[in-house]
Design a protein around this nucleic acid. Structure first.
Lengths: 226, 226
DNA sequence: CGACAAATTGAGTGTTTTCAACGATCGTGG
DNA sequence: CCACGATCGTTGAAAACACTCAATTTGTCG
C-alpha cells in the first residue's frame, strides 16, 4: 500500500479561537476523575454534555463480539457527550487515562423553541470537527503502519505545541495498548514501527516520551516517501 | 444469460426509480445532476445545504497525491453539505453516481440570534447520525474483508428495505471500484470476497444485483463467526 | 530483591495487495 | 447488424504486510 498523502493542516483538528482562548483562561472542573474512572458508560442514561478541563480521556466502544475500540482521545478544550442531545443512552464510554478534570455544560434542549442558539452553534461546530477528525482517521486507517504512526506523532506534537509544550519532546498520555487500539494495530506492530523510526534516527523513544529528531523525515514517512 | 438464481426483474426499472414508490410524498428537486456531475467540488466556496431527492451521490475527498477516498454514499432523504455551516470552503466533492435530483434547503445562519431552532435541531441530528456512521465504519476498517463486505450488504439491505424495496434483492448503485474505495479495499479483493460469499451460498451475484440468500449466515459472517 | 506488568524482539502464519491476464458488457461507428 | 474498442468485473500467482504466538528485556511497585 503506497498512499502518498501529504500531512498538511487539513487533517489536523480544526484550529480556531479555542486554541488561544483556553490557554489563557480555563474554567474550573466540576468533577475530578481518577485513572480508569468512567465519566459515563456505554448504555447508561445520557445526561448532559461535558468539557474536558485537564487531563486526557478516551472514548471506548465495546462491540457485541467483545472487541473494544478506542474511538478517540479527548484533551482539554474538547467537548464530549454529544449523544445526550440526540438519544437517551450513551453510545460509548468515556474513561480517564489518568487524573482528569471535566465540567458540565449548561443543558441544551434541542426540541424547545427559543433554545440558546449560541450553544447550538457551538455544538454544531464541535460535531463537525469530530466528523472531520473521523474522516481523517479513516484515511489513516488505510495507510501503512509507519505512515499511521508517523502521522499520529506529528499530530500529537502539533497538539501539544499549541498548549505551550515543546514540540520536540512529546509525552504520550496513553500506554502502548491503548494507542495501538486507537491506531488499529497490534501492540507489537506499533512497537516495531516505533523501533524502525528510532533506528532511522527520526525519533528517540524513552518509554512514554517520544523525542522528535527529524520532523521533516517524519513528514516524509507519513507521506509514504521512504 | 443463465441466471444461477431467481431474479426479480423489478430492478430493471431505471436506476433513479429504485425509490419510485416512496411512502410519503417527496419534495421536487430544484436541480438535476447527470452521471458524474458535481453537486459541488472540494475547495469551492461552500454555499448552502442540500437534500438528496432521487438517485445516489458519493462524497469524495481527493488527496494531494491524486488518490481519492470515497467518504460516503448519499441516498434520498440524506442531507449533504454541512460544511457550509461551519467553514467557507467545501471539504469534499459530492458527485452523482447516476442521474440524481437534489433540492436546496433554506439557509441557516449559525451565528444569528433567534435562528430557526427547529432547523438547527435537524442539523444536529443529521450530524450526529453521520458521526455514528463514521464510527461504525472505523470499526469496519479493522475487520476482515469478508466481515466488511457482509456488513455493508446487510446495512445496504436494511437501508433499501426502509424505502420499501425488497430486502433480499438489492441493487448496488455504485460500481466495484467506488465500493472498494469506500470499503478501503482493492477492487480485486472486494470481488474475491463476493465470490467467496457466493460460493458459500450466502448471496447471489449478478453484476450490480446482489441477492441475499442467507441473511443469518451473512450476519454470522459480519460478526466474524465463520 | 522478587513478582508482576508493560514493552520489545523474533519466527512463522495468514491475509491482502499487486501485477497480469481473461471474459463480459456496452456504446460507437462502419 | 456486426466489428471494434473501452471499461468493468473476475480470476490466478507471487510478494508484501501485519498478525499471532512465544521468548526476552525493561520498568514498577510491594
Amino acid at each position: 500500500m503506497h498512499h502518498a498523502f501529504e500531512v498538511d493542516e487539513s487533517w489536523m483538528r480544526e484550529e480556531g479561537a479555542s486554541t488561544a482562548e483556553w490557554l489563557t483562561e480555563r474554567p474550573s472542573p466540576s468533577r475530578i476523575l481518577q485513572r480508569d474512572e468512567c465519566l459515563y458508560c456505554m448504555g447508561a442514561a445520557a445526561e448532559g454534555v461535558h468539557e474536558v478541563v485537564t487531563g486526557v480521556l478516551k472514548s471506548v466502544v465495546v462491540h457485541p463480539d467483545g472487541r473494544e475500540q478506542v474511538v478517540g482521545f479527548h484533551v482539554p478544550g474538547d467537548i464530549v457527550g454529544y449523544d445526550a442531545l440526540v438519544q437517551s443512552t450513551r453510545s460509548c464510554s468515556v474513561v480517564a487515562l489518568d487524573t482528569a478534570g471535566v465540567r458540565s455544560l449548561p443543558p441544551v434542549c434541542l426540541g424547545r423553541q427559543g433554545a440558546e442558539t449560541a450553544a447550538l452553534a457551538d455544538i454544531v461546530t464541535g460535531l463537525f470537527r469530530d466528523l472531520q477528525r473521523l474522516t481523517d482517521q479513516i484515511y489513516l486507517e488505510r495507510a501503512t503502519t509507519r505512515q499511521r504512526v508517523a502521522a499520529f506523532l506529528l499530530h500529537q506534537a502539533r497538539d501539544l505545541a499549541r498548549q505551550g509544550c515543546s514540540e520536540r519532546e512529546l509525552v504520550l498520555p496513553m500506554n502502548r495498548r491503548d494507542l495501538a487500539c486507537f491506531l488499529g494495530l497490534a501492540p507489537e506492530t506499533l512497537c516495531r514501527a516505533l523501533s524502525v523510526l528510532r533506528r532511522r534516527r527520526l525519533i528517540g523513544v524513552e518509554r512514554n516520551v517520544i523525542h522528535i529528531r527529524d520532523s521533516a523525515g517524519l513528514q516524509a514517512e507519513a507521506a509514504g516517501n521512504e
